[in-house]
Design a protein around this nucleic acid. Structure first.
Lengths: 330, 330
DNA sequence: TTGTATGCGTTATCAC
DNA sequence: GTGATAACGCATACAA
């Protein structure tokens, strides 16, 4: 494997000159330029960027930590991150954490060990104290999901307002006994969505019943399960608000299997507007997040942080949209 | 940011000793060990792995190139790759190529520039000549999709046999006019699946009609579109074999929208057994690939290649399974 | 414009 | 068991 030394020798110049050619410095004669280029070609030389990175103390690589790519919600967000990253000369790589703390630590180590220049968290199990500590020394940013109170830049939608809007929509459709399929986790999004749900009921003069707020894990099966519970017992619900589309789709399946129909008997609203919302029958009413823009924004925030350690901490909130489809409107 | 030098100074030992502690070499006294550890703690020292990697000419990072994480088929494969990789001390990162050649080149550059130790291709736009050239100098492996004739290790199922089995199943269910939703690409899998489809028809004495072999792009919408074509014209089909589940699900939707029913009027078979196959109505009959094992196998092959440049080239074929569900059986 | 020499942060090879 | 010190491959301040 040829090194810069070999090229220098072959071109009969110093390594400095070769380096200059590689980084196309203006101060190198046309002639030497050519000679060096030829040598590079002939030796099939590939610069070892480990050397360069060590020297420059940067790698131009950034990591995106996502719980799991099984959740297609992240795909568009990642595209936004990639596009802005690439425009600025950064390579973006994805890492699955599977919501496991030690896996998160492994990738965090890559940051601390200077193997990557920054990390975007799509969700994290770290405490706000831990995040603050890391952010003091290394560039990190939160995207979509975030830990409340952590003192670092983030971008997301207003989950409270979104849930409020979704539930109010159900109420306007005449629904009065609206269940929620939520989660046991303490993510900011969960807390805010529950708060928005409750506020909407309260504003409409509907009593909140803890019994019809069930936990799920965002997945299809947990939607099936939750709906089954809601139907077996005598809750007599006529609406469901789920904090993920997959759970909403699972709930619809259970409802139909029980001989009831959506939206006539029970209207259903999901969250995220993943692709499958328009594939199911009926199509799912849901909250659409501006995924691509969230990604772009996150990368922009990270770049600011990388370029300027003392960059202002920003909390950006993007607009969401209620996509009204067949699952709530007869 | 503290370096190994700082630690050495603080602990009043040489950098060599610190390095030994870091790599827990046995030949270092209990006492010094402790002193060094304390210094590391106090300085909050994080080794800069760029230095280590430069020295060792390895990074313990490997890249998985996937066309797009929008396709959930890859999720389980990636899990297999990660598990075997992690067991062996490697960090696995995902890169989206979006089937764009230049994006593929960018990540390939990371390999050539020694920023990563190897690459697993889940699909590639490179020619077999290009792949052979790369494989001569750097560890690469193909997984699931592959370029025929490329002289490097790969792992996949037998796409020919799988398609043959799927179509034969339709025939056994009494179907006689079976359409195929395929692709215009020239991937080995496509070619082989088409061949298997034709062979099955031929064996059953059914004539092959090029008119009912339509192209798609693996996505839901192209499934909708293809089915629409098949239904408008007077093809009178009673079965569809699609080379992706998403297209099969799209086709089912079109069929139902046209007042026909699955499987009574038209039976449908997909390919891959992604999660959504059991979420749709009726559930989709499909070919299940051993995704996790494919991932494990790919990583194992890559490790062999990394550890021994002259490792034998292997072409591993894993078993597939026809998952018979409601979309083909009344 | 070009070359020399030094340093980036490690690990590894020697001596001792 | 420990410490100097020379690499690893590159970029760059400084001299020329």
């Amino acid at each position: 494997m040829a090194t810069i030394q070999d090229v220098a020798k072959a071109a009969k110049v110093s390594v400095a000159t070769v380096s200059r050619v590689l980084n196309n410095s203006p101060s190198v004669s046309e002639k030497k330029q050519q000679v060096v280029m030829r040598a590079i070609q002939e030796l099939n030389y590939q610069p070892n960027l480990l050397g360069r990175n060590l020297r420059r103390t940067e790698t131009k690589m950034i990591l995106v930590l996502v719980p799991t790519i099984f959740n297609t919600f992240y795909a568009k967000v990642v595209k936004g991150i990639e596009d802005i990253g690439n425009e600025n000369g950064y390579n973006v790589m994805l890492c699955n954490t599977y919501a496991e703390k030690n896996r998160e630590q492994v990738f965090l180590k890559q940051l601390k060990n200077r193997l990557v220049d920054g990390i975007i968290f799509m969700a994290t199990g770290l405490s706000k104290e831990a995040l603050n500590e890391i952010n003091q020394h290394f560039p990190i940013v939160q995207c979509c999901e975030y830990i409340k109170g952590a003192n670092l830049s983030r971008i997301s939608i207003d989950n409270y307002a979104a849930a409020y809007k979704a539930v109010t929509h159900l109420i306007r459709q005449g629904r009065k006994r609206i269940a929620m399929i939520s989660s046991l986790n303490k993510l900011a999004s969960t807390v805010e969505r529950e708060a928005g749900y409750k506020k909407a009921l309260e504003n409409a003069g509907i009593a909140i019943e803890p019994d019809i707020i069930l936990p799920g894990d965002y997945g299809f099966k947990s939607g099936l399960r939750a709906a089954r519970q809601l139907l077996t017992k005598e809750f007599n619900i006529d609406g469901i608000f789920a904090i993920s589309d997959m759970m909403a789709i699972g709930a619809m399946k259970t409802i139909k299997e029980n001989g009831l129909s959506v939206p006539e008997d029970i209207a259903v609203v999901g969250f995220d507007d993943i692709r499958y919302t328009s594939m199911c029958e009926p199509q799912l009413t849901t909250i659409s997040q501006p995924q691509y823009d969230l990604g772009c924004g996150a990368m922009t925030l990270l770049l600011k942080r990388i370029q300027n350690e003392k960059a202002d901490i920003e909390h950006i909130v993007l607009e969401h949209e209620l996509m009204i489809r067949g699952s709530t409107v007869i």
